[in-house]
Design a protein around this nucleic acid. Structure first.
Lengths: 340, 340
DNA sequence: TAGCGCTATTGAAACGTTATAAATCGGTGC
DNA sequence: GCACCGATTTATAACGTTTCAATAGCGCTA
């Protein structure tokens, strides 16, 4: 108890006493203020390192209003396999060592998607926001642009004003998928789309339709279900289509789940993958290499995506204008067909 | 500018002015202190609701030392499909409305697993901790018990002292898996285990071995690879075993990935699932229903797990003793074989 | 009516930081 | 010798909350 003071958590006052400078000087020295003499700065940093000083986040936050927190709105309804894991890993990786921490808040697409954003701004819970599943005129994007609050969206909008985004080129994916299937002689392609409101749905549809038209082949966009529908509903819709007069002989699948469902439907209706129909898919996880029969697929690297989003957000928070802040991940033109 | 005061973020002082009480009174009234007159409390709450008062987290944190943050250490190396997504969804769900937020910090099993924990305690970054992939004598558990810091582990340890945990009964799973395969006439079972250090590895091995011995059948624990090994290494090991003198006719798979790899190995070596061998698996995501051939599986409900972990942590943080705080999810005794 | 004991309220201090404005100091110019 | 200057440093206030110790009010008892 007598020497307890030694183990106390060091604060600016501790450093001030240790160096002989005033608290204010120490603070400014640590922040690298050029108006503090270089020698003083060196002394203070040395003492800080020696005593293991770490600034108190709460105090800094109270004083400056900055939280040192970045929040990810986590889409809860549906998951592309591994999406959350990979994206989060990329984000934490990029933020490692920056002093920022990542909090996760659920984004329930059924509920008001704006509500969590409002709460975060109102209660000052974060300095920046990341979110996914962007709508063409996403209310969150509109709100945040008006509030001039830093964010990066995973996906684009159709607003006129520029905002930071990272996206995967789903139009190119759809085109490539179609031409892959066409090259294999397929003449009637099926597609299950995500919900109508999402921007990437428009990109997928456009890419798919224009490629299909250019190739002069037939197509079918499966009605009444989306990627987020329960598996059995997707299966039912695909089964109905297979039993119809002109079943597709090729499928473009936007996620692993749809691909697996399509594969199951083929099997369950007595069709053989590679013979009666081919499937190509976009995947986030490496599991496709292990699926038999092998499915051709293109990988969306969500770890890299998360990394890029977090880095871009840091830049935006540092004040960079949004005009240059966007990045489109373009899929490899060739589909990986897992090796023999 | 003249009426700008109206839009200022309300603080305790605002409420004090609005109600005529002192700041201290308002604070205590809102915290429900019984020494404040009921009428006063009512008045204050009414004003708080009317003005939309929300306590400032930074200020509260600075004053009390409590962060209102719960941190999840996210195991980055390997993911059981959907694990992260489901677990996180369960956690955020349980914490919704409690005022706690969830931050995510990477837990790299290659690196020092204790390091992030040390940082969190030292810099007071959270009030409680959740983590997975528990080792038999997990250094994080030991450290946190010594520091008397609230946490809930996803998995048990072999320490004598009690600590809060949530776990899945992997021993029961292994037993059930074996008896399922035995009932189908299988006589030589293969198993791929997680890394040796993890507690659940011991549970799986014990359950597997004792069930196998009771049934008087043969077995093979695949050597040199773990669940976390690269897919191709697992595949190579399984393939080698299949080509050996006595290939297994049944596989117990602890995750989706292993199951898919095993299935692929069967296909690639010309064996037929359901004829030459059967696979049973533990799964976290619902995708198994879509795999063909159908694989019998038991589900570990990670959303419920996350929910239970977060709720338990809240109770622990409220001061409940650890002795009663644990919960074992026992698998359904029957394996789901996806319906026809 | 003075004093007591109780309830309800309050003033002030503190948590650790940063920003503003002011102070210190050696040297310069006149 | 005095006012002034630039370069450093410092005292102080403030961010919004909680809590300790003190105060005010008031009905009761002696």
């Amino acid at each position: 108890m007598t020497d307890g003071a030694q183990t106390e958590k060091p604060t600016l006052r501790t450093l001030a006493q240790a160096t002989g400078f005033a608290v204010a000087t120490v603070s400014r020295a640590l922040s690298g203020d050029p108006r503090i003499a270089a020698k003083t700065r060196a002394k203070v940093s040395e003492a800080a390192a020696r005593l293991g000083y770490v600034p108190d986040r709460a105090a800094r936050r109270l004083r400056t209003g900055r939280t040192q927190v970045i929040t990810l709105l986590l889409h809860t309804e549906h998951e592309f396999l591994g999406f959350t894991h990979e994206l989060l890993s990329g984000i934490t990786e990029a933020l490692d060592g920056t002093g920022y921490s990542v909090t996760v808040v659920p984004d329930s697409p059924g509920a008001d998607r704006l509500a969590p954003v409002r709460t975060i701004l109102r209660n000052n819970l974060a300095d920046g926001l990341l979110f996914t599943r962007i709508e063409t005129f996403d209310p969150r994007v509109r709100f945040l642009m008006e509030a001039d609050f830093p964010f990066v969206s995973h996906g684009r909008t159709e607003f006129a004003a520029a905002h930071p985004w990272v996206d995967f080129d789903n139009e190119a994916f759809a085109r490539a998928a179609v031409s892959h299937l066409v090259a294999r002689g397929r003449r009637r392609l099926g597609l299950v789309l995500p919900g109508e409101k999402y921007t990437f749905t428009q990109h997928l549809r456009y890419g798919f339709l224009s490629a299909v038209r250019e190739a002069g082949i037939d197509h079918q966009i499966v009605a009444d279900v989306t990627l987020d529908s329960p598996h059995d509903e997707i299966a039912a819709a695909l089964t109905a289509a297979r039993r119809g007069p002109a079943p597709p002989d090729g499928y473009v699948c936007v996620g692993e789940v749809t691909a697996l469902v399509a594969l199951a439907v083929l099997a369950d209706t007595g069709a053989v993958h590679g013979v009666d129909a081919d499937i190509v898919a976009k995947r986030a996880s490496p599991i496709f290499d292990d699926i038999r029969p092998r499915i051709a697929s293109v990988r969306e690297d969500l770890r890299a995506t998360g990394h890029a989003m977090a880095e871009m957000l840091l830049r935006r928070m540092r004040g960079e204008p949004p005009e240059q802040l966007h990045r489109l991940f373009v899929p490899q033109p060739r589909f990986d067909v897992p090796g023999r």
